[in-house]
Design a protein around this nucleic acid. Structure first.
Lengths: 340, 340
DNA sequence: GGGCACTATGTTCCCGGTAACGTCGCGGCG
DNA sequence: CGCCGCGACGTTACCGGGAACATAGTGCCC
């Protein structure tokens, strides 16, 4: 405390004069330029250390026209999945020497307004953009907004305009449905997320495709809103629904709502109906019954996204896209159907 | 696309020459300076509009020595509460013309390393700092790191060094315990979070204080780790525990684990034991049984935090701290104890 | 009608870095 | 022995804004 600081923060010039060199030499040392004599380098670093000097990122950004900041748009209200991904992105970006600026959907509205979000982020200076949990409508709008900014969208389909990375949603859905088929289920319904979301669509398609391939009846999907409440509402309407013996829910929260609704209606899981979720929230293994679900590795996803973006930014662009395999976690909420 | 853009982005000078004024006039218009003729203002704004001009935030930060950025440290791994607060902070900051840069704990480690986090944030230029879900140890370290940076810590106790804002944790705990007492419970145990976390401590103290005031027996608190798993482990050890009829769990996740463990042990909730949680996650109303809990308004908390910080930054510093009242939500997991 | 207080605007310099180019010393080579 | 090339720096200009001061017009008052 008050250890004789000259009032202002040190800058390149003050370091330089203390080290007896020019400010450019200091800059070069800090940037790891090759042609610096070891003695000089050490002299400079010593002073840097001593004054606890930190480069001014604003000045750097101004001079280089690069902010070393990645903008992130999170298109879904607070949920473990998107937030885990966001944190993983932040972490990986930090490790790579970047910082992150995010715009996230509020609890009230569905998603973010893409135009406003991009405006905000570009106004604050970003080198690249990453979109988590996107809606199809957002992607459409983004196409014409992200001109010149490397943009990665967390989605499974390739896209000519964007970099992509994702957990393979269709594979996840396939694993879930396959598991139910293997157990002997023939009537498998789907409680989907809002189909404007790409993840919801991909899961619905995976479910649909697997049923079709198995030659099973394909009932219309019930569309929820990701919330446990919507799963609950689906379940309490059980008596009015066409018969089925298994449900694939598009996320664990809706699955939880379904468990709750069934309990109230006296329908037993898994004896009467099997339920599979998606995400494997940390709490899902404590639902009653514990939930069979599809695990997504959000951390790996965020890390991968940053890897791809940074590669694109720094030239060694190898891959434009990549998918992470999800994993089926079998617990108590699924079983073979009773013989009718 | 390619609608005749001159290659580079417009800047103050290019706007100025197109509008036939000096760059300072443009700057003044954009900053809302008073002494500008309406005609001039409109002329400038027209050009700004036309070129879709956005100020360069790096240049602005360099010139003003203000980044208009708030650094946020989230000291807990991914969880709905802290992430909701973070998002609310981000939202409120955006509305106030600030952006947010965050450092969050990864799933692996407990909390963030305060020194590294602050270094990182200051290196990227922040005007203020906000700490969400802090550990006591973090706070101690921060005291000597945040010299000169207005810092708000989300905690309930006043602090000479920091601004504070919080949901009143002790009040929340008091509400929970009061509810159990009102139902006729006399043996009320607490499943706490790790006591290094200020929130965990405050809840433990609230529980302790209310029991003491009621003259009830105060059993030692069981310390979990916030996870549903730790609640589960507590519950399955039921037979080895001293007798009790009610549990106050420090968060909903541990409460869920408790419900799960009790189910396995054949202990009925609320008939045998009542359970109260804390947080009111969106899923808590679908637990089996639905969970009585203490609701925290995370959005209000984040908004409040930014309000206080911005007030501190912009001089009209009114309040240094403020608390939000939590609310008891009564559901099925609590009932009067059976007469023994 | 001249001085004066404003108002509206322009000039210049500076923020703290980096790019581009200049300079100096030294060793190798014809 | 003189020239060249290059390594190791230094100098200068510039990134795009804003603060501080300078300056031109304008109405008002004595």
């Amino acid at each position: 405390m008050s250890a004789g600081n000259s009032d202002d923060k040190p800058n390149l010039r003050s370091i330089a004069s203390l080290a007896g060199v020019s400010h450019m030499t200091v800059s070069r040392v800090l940037n790891g330029h090759p042609n610096i004599r070891p003695a000089t380098r050490e002299k400079v670093l010593r002073v840097v250390e001593e004054l606890n000097y930190q480069r001014n990122s604003a000045a750097r950004a101004l001079a280089t026209r690069k902010s070393r900041r990645i903008g992130v748009i999170v298109d879904r209200p607070v949920e473990i999945g998107p937030d885990s991904t966001l944190r993983a992105v932040e972490h990986a970006a930090r490790e790579a020497g970047y910082s992150v600026s995010s715009v996230a959907a509020s609890p009230d509205d569905d998603g973010v307004m893409p135009r406003e979000a991009v405006d905000y982020l570009t106004a604050h200076g970003i080198d690249a953009l990453c979109v988590i949990a996107p809606r199809a409508s957002s992607v459409d709008v983004l196409r014409e907004l992200t001109d010149g900014i490397p943009t990665l969208i967390v989605k499974a389909d390739d896209d000519a305009n964007f970099l992509t990375a994702s957990v393979d949603q269709r594979l996840g859905a396939t694993l879930a449905v396959q598991h139910l088929i293997d157990l002997g289920h023939r009537e498998i319904v789907h409680v989907a997320g809002p189909l404007d979301w790409l993840d919801a669509r991909a899961r619905e398609r995976g479910w649909h495709a697997r049923l079709k391939r198995a030659g099973l009846h394909i009932p219309p999907a019930f569309v929820g809103d990701w919330s446990a409440d919507s799963g609950y509402e689906f379940a309490v309407a059980f008596d009015e629904l066409p018969p089925f013996t298994a449900i694939f829910a598009a996320n664990d929260q809706m699955a939880l709502g379904i468990l709750h609704g069934f309990r109230e209606r006296g329908i037993r899981v898994p004896e009467d109906v099997s339920v599979v979720g998606f995400d494997d929230l940390s709490v899902s293994r404590h639902f009653l019954p514990t939930l069979t679900t599809v695990r997504q590795d959000f951390h790996a996803l965020g890390t991968l996204a940053v890897e791809i973006l940074v590669a694109a930014l720094e030239g060694d662009s190898t891959e434009r896209r990549s998918r992470i395999a999800p994993e089926l976690i079998i617990r108590e909420s699924t079983a073979s159907p009773r013989v009718m």
